[in-house]
Design a protein around this nucleic acid. Structure first.
Length: 425
RNA sequence: GGAGAGGUGGCUGAGUGGUCGAAAGCGAACGACUCGAAAUCGUUUAAUAGAUAACUAUUCGUGGGUUCGAAUCCCACCCUCUCCGCCA
């Protein structure tokens, strides 16, 4: 959520910052509404002041005189009634304006950071670095081919259970998923993160607080009988965990790691990534989340990203770090580093983690503050996947494939998985 | 799902129509005492918006209503707790 005062007082700055996203944002209508609303606020405030004074006077009058139905009292009450009518008219206008303003502002995305590369779309993202060696071999199999031959998961049967884009993990596949979750949680908790397992269903307010609503209602699954949605990412419940709180500054930064299933409708992605583990309606993810002092989120962003990277390094999976350009930034983010893992079968990098600094955008929407120099300020929030489990499994299968059809498990994962190779039964 | 109780400041908790944004306690901050600390005493301590020098308004679960005036009365909704039923 952007600051209403900023929109009112510096609309051109707001438009300029937003336009870095490569789209034209005209906020003159919002600006007009906020200016109008301020005038009405002042008007109402003045009327309420007069009305309160009068009410006190009436109270005193009643206490002082025995005659509770005197002409004087009736006249005063009549005047009070006039105030009430006038005030309620203005309050009605206030309500309407408030709603209009909120509806519009809550649909505006965050400002991109001045450090983010300027660009229109994906193609302008900047590769910062690469890590690890690419597997160079002929006749490489895709992870779904490997999964099928080793009987690690089944999507055909899963359409019977649910529909397309769902998967059932089987045997060593299920075991590998579980190993990856435990491995990642252990690394992060050893690294100072507090582990949470949040609810998988979240209410509308929580989704609004982290920025998924109102604009992206089409991207999450909704429960029909309740105001509850299937959480698309642990970022939602983690943000809401401290909703409406003032966090003691000595507790900052708060660092959480959460395992959660994630549910996404993937509307508009028909035909893309229809095979394998890349794009599913339900997937598991281990998420990192920081609440920081508003002056310390830039360093925190580096740290959360390197914490996510550390998993890829320990698993010895080749990846690259990408600085997302202004036009490709997510709604709530001001700066995002993506980690993309190398998938040798398709000879490309695929997003496996997204580490974002949302500054105060989510904190304002969720009202999460801290006291600094006796003043309440919004905290900054950061999130990063570390990592998406399904895509990590895909990367392990593809990068670890051996010529005999087996898959080598990364050394660091062996204690969790229980053996060095996945072989045909 | 049925019955009952309740939602007040960082927390506990008083307050049923009139200077109540709200007693008291706890916690916290500062000061005094002390070599230092504890204990004790004193002062301070909700948020938001607007003006910023004081100030003005709003907020006692949420939204409406009654009234000159609502934490207090009325209506609707949400949530929590207890008991019963059901259940992993």
């Amino acid at each position: 959520m952007l600051d209403q005062k900023l929109i009112r007082e510096n609309p051109t700055i707001v438009e300029k910052n937003l336009s870095l996203r490569g789209k034209v944002y005209n906020i003159s209508d919002i600006n007009e509404l906020t200016v109008k609303k301020k005038e009405i606020d002042i008007e109402v405030s003045n009327l309420q002041f007069e009305s309160k004074k009068l009410s006190k006077l009436i109270g005193q009058e009643i206490n002082n005189s025995q005659n509770k139905t005197s002409q004087k009292l009736n006249d005063l009450k009549k005047r009070g009634n006039e105030y009430r009518i006038k005030i309620s008219e203005f309050e009605e206008k206030q309500r309407i304006l408030d709603k209009q303003i909120y509806d519009k502002i809550s649909n505006l995305p965050n400002f991109p950071s001045i450090d983010a590369p300027i660009g229109k779309d994906e193609s302008n993202n900047v590769q910062v670095k690469t890590w690890g060696d690419h597997l160079k071999k002929d006749n490489l199999n895709s992870h779904w081919e490997i999964g099928e031959s080793l009987n690690l998961f089944d999507s055909t049967k899963s359409t019977k259970i649910s529909k397309s884009r769902f998967i059932t993990l089987i045997g060593n596949g299920a075991r590998l998923e579980r190993a990856l979750i435990n491995f990642m949680l252990d690394i992060h908790t050893q690294n100072g993160y507090l582990e949470l397992i949040p609810p998988a269903l979240v209410n509308s307010e929580s989704l609004t607080g982290s920025g998924q609503l109102p604009k992206f209602s089409n991207e999450s699954f909704k429960c029909s009988n309740d105001d509850l949605w299937l959480s698309p990412t642990a970022e939602v419940p983690l943000t809401a965990f401290h909703k409406n709180e003032i966090i003691d500054s000595k507790h900052l930064p708060l660092k959480y790691v959460a395992y959660s299933p994630c549910f996404r409708r993937e509307a508009g992605s028909y035909g893309r990534d229809t095979k394998g583990l890349i794009r599913l309606h339900q997937f598991n993810k281990v998420e990192l989340y920081w609440f920081t002092d508003p002056n310390k989120s830039i360093e925190a962003h580096q740290k959360i990203t390197s914490d996510a990277e550390s998993i890829l390094k320990k698993l010895n999976l080749p990846y690259r770090l990408v600085d997302i350009c202004t036009g490709d930034l997510g709604f709530s983010s001001s700066r995002t580093f993506d980690l993309e893992v190398w998938l040798p079968s398709s000879k490309c990098y695929r997003e496996i983690s997204s580490c974002s600094n949302c500054l105060e955008f989510q904190a304002r929407r969720s009202s999460i503050r801290t006291k600094i120099d006796k003043k309440n300020q919004f905290v900054h929030t950061l999130n990063g996947s570390a990592l998406a489990i399904g895509r990590t499994m895909a990367a392990i299968l593809e990068n670890g494939q051996q010529s005999d059809g087996s898959v080598k498990i990364p050394d660091a994962l062996v204690p969790y998985f229980g053996s060095n190779f996945i072989k045909t039964a």
